[in-house]
């Protein structure tokens, strides 16, 4: 199973309406999603897409509990590697 990378997350975020925004990069890894313009509904949308694409299951409280891109990437990787 491949690792879930920053690029993978950035691509999903763009699909969820971020195409007008500057790309996610190392500098924004620790910026809260809320500050990047992604509300709880947007996070739900992103996590559903991660679930579908990587065949993992993310509980809803975790979906809204991941505060930053780094937290999301780390959490998804624990799931991906455990699978």
């Amino acid at each position: 199973m491949s690792t879930f990378t920053l690029d993978d997350l950035a691509k999903l975020m763009r699909e969820c309406g971020g195409e007008d925004q500057e790309g996610l990069c190392g500098d924004t890894l620790d910026v809260p999603f809320a500050d990047l313009g992604y509300d709880s509904l947007a996070l739900l949308e992103i996590t559903t897409r991660i679930e579908n694409r990587y065949s993992v299951s993310i509980p809803e409280d975790m979906a809204t509990g991941m505060k930053t891109p780094r937290e999301a990437i780390d959490y998804v990787n624990t799931l991906v590697h455990a699978a």
């Binding site: 969820c16 309406g17 971020g18 195409e19 007008d20 925004q21 313009g37 509904l41 947007a42």
Partner: peptide, 8 residues
């Protein structure tokens, strides 16, 4: 319409 609003 900005993309963030367009998709939703």
């Amino acid at each position: 319409v900005p993309s963030r609003l367009r998709v939703q």
